[in-house]
Design a binder for these strands. Sequence first.
DNA 1: ACTCATATTTAACGCGCGTAAAGTTTTTAT
DNA 2: ATAAAAACTTTACGCGCGTTAAATATGAGT
Lengths: 341, 341
Amino acid sequence: MTKIKNMEEFAALSGISRPTVSKYFHDPESVRASTRARIEEALEQFDYRPNIYAVNQNRKLTKNIGIVVPYLVDPFFAEIARYLEQSCIAAGYRPSLFSSHGEQKLENEILDSLRSLKPAGVLLAPLGRASDRSQIEKFCADVPTVLFDSNLEGLGAAFIGSDNFSFVSQTVEYMTRTGEPPSFFEMRTPANPNANKRRKAYVEVMERLGFEPHVIKIDGEGWAFEEIGHKGAMKVLERGLLRTDSVLCSNDRLAIGFLAACYEQGIRVGRQPDCSLRVASNDGHPFAKFTCPSLTTAAHDYDNVAGRGAETLFELIESGGKFSDRTETLFPARLILRESA
Amino acid sequence: MTKIKNMEEFAALSGISRPTVSKYFHDPESVRASTRARIEEALEQFDYRPNIYAVNQNRKLTKNIGIVVPYLVDPFFAEIARYLEQSCIAAGYRPSLFSSHGEQKLENEILDSLRSLKPAGVLLAPLGRASDRSQIEKFCADVPTVLFDSNLEGLGAAFIGSDNFSFVSQTVEYMTRTGEPPSFFEMRTPANPNANKRRKAYVEVMERLGFEPHVIKIDGEGWAFEEIGHKGAMKVLERGLLRTDSVLCSNDRLAIGFLAACYEQGIRVGRQPDCSLRVASNDGHPFAKFTCPSLTTAAHDYDNVAGRGAETLFELIESGGKFSDRTETLFPARLILRESA
DNA sequence: ACTCATATTTAACGCGCGTAAAGTTTTTAT
DNA sequence: ATAAAAACTTTACGCGCGTTAAATATGAGT
C-alpha cells in the first residue's frame, strides 16, 4: 500500500481531478454520485486524509468548535461537555475542550488561544463572577459564541441554560408541602450567577407560600464547593442556625459537603421518622445518587441544555455568525426524589 | 491600531526581516537581545500572532501534545489531566484534551484524529481491557507516546503510573494491624489493568501476613463504578458474604457505592466502637474526603505521576521520539487515614 | 582599525490545499 | 436528437509561514 503524500497524489490514484477531490472533502454530497463512489473506493484502498493545517489555513471558515467550561473536575461540567462534544462530532465539527479551572487568568488565556484556532464557533460556560467581562465581550465580538450554564447579561449571541426559578420552586414547594419550609444554604459570594437567581427564587417562592425566607450565607472562595459546604455546615450545625428541620442547598456540591458534616455530627438526614433533618439541593450531580443519604435534587436537563446549546451554535454558524437578536433559552429542572428529603 | 495580516507586515512594522521574526517565534532566545527587544516592542504595539495553521503545516514538528484519558467524568482523571495540561503549557506546548468516555470506538477515533494533528507527542491513559491493542500499537509506532495510569505491556515509549502493590500493601497492612483482615471488593471483569495488580497484591500481602485472602467479585460492565459498587455491595451485605468486619475496595468509586449501600442498610462504617464495618480503598479520589464516613484510602501521587509523565514525554520528544528502551516508572501511594477504617 | 564569528537581510522556493476561470465532458430536459 | 445545465478537468494563483543560500551587517576581541 503506497503512502499518499498529498491530495494531488491521491487525486491521481483515484482518477479524479484535485479540485473535485477537494470539493468532495468539503462536502461529499456536492459531487456526482459516480465520482463520489470512485473517490470513496480509492479512499478505502489508500487511506488518505487531507492535511488539516493546510485545509484550515485556506478555508475561510474552519470546522473547529471550542467548548469551554469553568471547572472540568466538577463532573457536572464533564458530563455537559461530553454531550456537547458528541453533538459537535455528529454534526461534522471538530470540538476541542478547555477548562478554565476556576481561574480568570486561564479563562482569558483560553479565549486568546481560541482566537488563533479560528473556530467556526464557541460554546462557552463562563466562570461567572470571576470572568473578565470586557475580555469576553471582545471575544464574542470576534468569534460566534453561544453561552451556556452561566449567563453573562448581553454577552454572546445566545444563552442556553437552566431555569433557576424552576429548580428552586420545585424543591421549595416539595419541601414545604411535605414538611417544614427550608432554609437556603449558599456561599456568601457565589462564583456563579445561577446562585443569585436561585436565592432570589427561594425568597420569592417562600414569600408567595407565606413563609419567612431564611438565607444562610457561608464563607469561602473558589471552586472547592464540597469543602466549603462542609465547613459551612459544621458551623451552622454547631451553632444551631437552622430555624426548621429543612435545608435547601444552592447546589449539589455544597450539599455533598453539608451531608458529610451532618454525618460527622451524628445528625440523621432524610424523610424517615428517625431523621431530624431534611436536605435537598439543585443540579442533579452525577454522584448525587450516592451520597448518604441519597440526595433529593432538582436536576438539570442535561440532554436539552447540551442539545439545544449545540444546535443554537450550529444555527449561528450557518447564519454567518450573527443573530438578529440575542435569545435566552431556559430549560426547567426535573425533581429527583431520593432519601435526603 | 492597524490590523496586522501576516508576518510580512509585522516584520515591516517592527523593522526586522521576516526570517528573523520567524526565528524569534520559534525560539526568542535564538535572536540577538537587541532585535528581540525591537520585536517585543512591536509585539506590544500591534498584537500579532503567527497563524498556527501555516506554522504547523511547515514545521516538521508541531508544538501540539495530545492528552487522552479513558473517562473524563471521573474526577480522578479530570484532576490528572489538569496537572498534565499545566505542565505542557509551562513547557511551551499546546495540549489538547480528549476523553474516550469508556468506549473503544471513541478511543480509536481519538487516536485517528490525533494522527492528523501531527502532535509532537501524546500522553495516553488507555481504556485498559477495552483498548484495541493493535490500534494503539500502530499509533505508538507513528507518534511518540507515553502511557500513564494503565500500563499496556510493551506499548508506548514509557509508562508512568502508580505502584499498585504499594497501594494495597499499605491499606492491607494498616487494616490488619488495627483490626480484622479485609476482604477485597472488586469488579469481576475490571476495565483497568490496575485492578488485577491490586487483587494480586492483596492476595500476596494477605498470605505473607498469614491470613487467608478473600476476594469478592461483583458483576457489572462499563465505567459507572459507583452504581456497580452500590449494587454489588447490596448483594454482599444482604447475603452476608463478608468473612470479617473489614473491606478493601479496589478503588474509591466502588467504595463510594459501597458506603452508600452500607448507609442504606443501616450499617455503621468506621473505626468507632459503634461501627460494625471498616471500609478502605485506593485512589485518593477528590471527593473521598466527603463520603460518609470519610474514606480511608491510598492516594495516587498526582503531582509526581503527572509531573514525571509530562517530563518523560518532553524528554522523548527532545530525543527524537524514540527511547533506547521502555521504562516503567511507578510512584508509591500515600495512605490517607480518615474515618471509614 | 582589522579580523573573524555571528546575526541579519534579501531573494526565492516549497508546503498542501482552497479557489477561480476557462474549456471540456457528461447528464438532463425537451 | 439537440440544447441547456451541471459536473468535471486543466491551469494557475494565493494563503502564511518555514527554510535555505548568498550577501551584507554587526559586534567582540586583539
